[in-house]
Simulated scan of single mutants.
Amino acid sequence: MQARDLMETDVKTVAADDDVADVFRKFARYEFSGFPVVDADDRVVGVVTESDLVDLFEPDDETLWIPVGLPPFVDTLTYQVKPPWADLDLGVDMVRNADRPVSDVMSTGVATVTPDAAVDDVLDLLAGDDPDINRVPVVDGDGRIVGIIARQDVIRAFRDERLA
């Protein structure tokens, strides 16, 4: 069995210069948790997931620095601050981030396979040490996307093989 036997060829993608708001609409329209990001030539340049977009609304640094003392003797104390989700104004964050390009939030260095890759190569990626790999884009020799394999595609193929 090869990657071509497992892959879905009707791949929904987003462009690297698409706005975050456009990608949110795609997540609402399709039941996917991530999309391959492609350039103008359909070459895979990244992946954007729901969690990448959720990260826009979580502060990267939850440390509040409070200066204590007067110059030139200023020390800083560190306090951990974890605001509850209810206190975050997601509407403001959405407006602030809506026109950001996906290239600002996508993951790069995407693991891909070619159509003739062995199923074991796909399994190694999906079951490997990186828990963030939930789908594997299938690319031709020029890096252009020709398909995608999600975990459920592999499970479905093995189920069908056992039933046959």
Rank of each mutant, 00 (worst) to 15 (best):
V110P: 13
R144P: 07
L64R: 03
R151D: 12
D55G: 08
D140F: 06
A16M: 05
R43Q: 07
E8T: 13
M94I: 10
T9P: 05
R100D: 14
V38N: 03
D120E: 15
V146H: 00
V23M: 03
E50Y: 00
V81N: 10
K82S: 15
D17M: 10
D124V: 07
A118Q: 14
N97V: 06
A86Y: 08
L6E: 00
L88M: 14
D124E: 13
P36Y: 02
D75M: 10
V38L: 05
V102E: 09
L125F: 10
P131G: 09
L123E: 08
Q152K: 15
V95M: 14
D140I: 03
T63K: 03
D52Y: 04
S51D: 04
P36V: 00
V81I: 10
V113F: 09
I148A: 07
D55L: 05
V122G: 12
V136H: 08
F35P: 00
D124W: 11
I145D: 11
G34K: 02
A86K: 07
V139I: 03
V23F: 04
G34V: 04
P59I: 01
D153C: 11
A127P: 08
V68L: 04
R4F: 03
D153K: 13
A15I: 08
F57Q: 01
W65K: 05
Y79I: 04
E62S: 00
W85D: 14
